[in-house]
C-alpha cells in the first residue's frame, strides 16, 4: 500500500540541526545532507571525466601528423574535474581545512578511494596533456601511451566511484542499487560525448564524428534502459523506494526527471542523432542541439537523483518485529 506521505511533507521533514521536534515520529524523510555542492561535484565530475575519456580516444584515433585539435577537450575535461569538481567538494565541506583527511581511509571508504582516483587523475592527466602538447617528450611513444592509458583508467574510476558511494546508503532505496555505478559510467560517457561534440562543433575543431556518433547511438539507448530499469526496481522495492518513484514520475520532480532528463535529455537527442546519421548539412546543427539537450538533461538527472532520495524510517511497519508487540 502506498504510504500517505505527500512530496511536500517529505520536503518539510528536516534533518540535522533543524527545528526542535515535539515528538520523534518514525516517518519517511527526504535526504537533505547532500545538496547543491555535492550535485555540482557529482555532475561536473561525470562531465569532465567523460569529456576527458572521449577526447583521449579521439586524439589516439587522429591520423599521424594531423593537428592535435582534440587536446582542447582533454584540457577542458581536466579542468572540470580538478577545479570545478574538487572545488565543489571543498566548498561543500563544512571544515575545508581538513579536506585532505578524505584520503585517509582508502582501504574501506569509497569517498577516500574516489579522492585517490581524483588525485591520480590529476597527476596522470596533467602529464598526459603535457605529453600530447609536446611540452614533455614521449608523444606517440611508450611513455605517452602508458600515461594516456593511466589517465584514461583514472578518469573511468572518477566516473564510477560516486555510484559506489551512493549505493552504500541502505536506507535510501533509490540509491541502494548495483545499477548506480553503471549509471554513472554510462551517463559520463554520454555527457562526455555530448560536451565534446558541442565544444568541437562550435569552435570548429576537427574530430572523428563517426566514433562519437557510434558511442552516442550505443550509450543513449543503454542509458534509457538503465533509467527505466531503475524506475522498475523502485516500484518493487521498499515503501521509501515507492515514494521516490512517485516523486520522480508523478510529483514535482516528474517535469525535470521524465520531461527534462529522460525525454529531452535522452530520447530526443537519440532521435536527432539517428536521424542525422549519414546526412549532410543538418548534421552539425543536430549534433549541437543534441549536445545541449544531453548536457542540460544530465544536470536535471543528477539533481533529481539527489532530491528524490527518501530515507526508510528506522522503525517501519512490516520490516521490524518490534511493531508487533
Amino acid at each position: 500500500m502506498m504510504p500517505n506521505v505527500t512530496d511536500q511533507r517529505i520536503d518539510q521533514l528536516s534533518v540535522g540541526a533543524g527545528p526542535i521536534p515535539e515528538t520523534f515520529e518514525a516517518s519517511f524523510r527526504g535526504q537533505r545532507d547532500w545538496r547543491f555542492w555535492e550535485l555540482m561535484a557529482f555532475y561536473f565530475g561525470c562531465l569532465g571525466a567523460g569529456l576527458y575519456a572521449i577526447s583521449a580516444l579521439l586524439d589516439w584515433r587522429a591520423p599521424g601528423g594531423a593537428p592535435r585539435t582534440t587536446v582542447t577537450g582533454l584540457i577542458v575535461g581536466f579542468v572540470l574535474v580538478i577545479v570545478i569538481k574538487n572545488g565543489s567538494h571543498v566548498l561543500g565541506s563544512s571544515r575545508p581545512g581538513r579536506a585532505l583527511r578524505a584520503l585517509s581511509q582508502v582501504g574501506s571508504s569509497w569517498i577516500s578511494r574516489g579522492s585517490l582516483f581524483i588525485l591520480l587523475f590529476g597527476i596522470f592527466g596533467a602529464l598526459d596533456v603535457m605529453v600530447r602538447l609536446g611540452w614533455i617528450p614521449g608523444d606517440k611513444d611508450v611513455l605517452g601511451w602508458i600515461l594516456g592509458i593511466l589517465a584514461l583508467l583514472a578518469s573511468l574510476a572518477v566516473m564510477v566511484y560516486v555510484g559506489f558511494v551512493m549505493a552504500q546508503g541502505r536506507r535510501i532505496s533509490l540509491w541502494h542499487s548495483p545499477l548506480m555505478p553503471v549509471i554513472f559510467l554510462v551517463y559520463s560517457v554520454v555527457v562526455g560525448c555530448a560536451l565534446a561534440t558541442g565544444i568541437f562543433v562550435i569552435f570548429g575543431i576537427a574530430y572523428d564524428t563517426e566514433l562519437v556518433r557510434v558511442l552516442m547511438l550505443i550509450g543513449i539507448p543503454v542509458m534509457i534502459f538503465l533509467v527505466l530499469a531503475q524506475l522498475a526496481f523502485l516500484g518493487t522495492s521498499t515503501e521509501a523506494g515507492r515514494i521516490s518513484l512517485r516523486m520522480l514520475i508523478r510529483g514535482r520532480l516528474a517535469a525535470p526527471y521524465i520531461g527534462g532528463a529522460l525525454i529531452f535529455g535522452l530520447v530526443i537527442p537519440l532521435i536527432l542523432t539517428a536521424a542525422a546519421y549519414g546526412t549532410s548539412g543538418g548534421e552539425a546543427v543536430a549534433s549541437v542541439i543534441s549536445a545541449v539537450l544531453i548536457v542540460i538533461g544530465g544536470y536535471l538527472f543528477f539533481s533529481s537523483l539527489l532530491k528524490a532520495a527518501v530515507y526508510t524510517p528506522t522503525v517501519e511497519p512490516g520490516r521490524s518485529l518490534l511493531v508487533n508487540i
Binding site: 535526504q31 545532507d33 571544515r95 552504500q168
Partner: peptide, 11 residues
C-alpha cells in the same frame, strides 16, 4: 577529524 562529508548519515 570531521570535515563534513556527511556520508556517515547516509550509510
Amino acid at each position: 577529524k570531521c570535515y563534513g562529508a556527511r556520508v556517515c548519515r547516509i550509510v
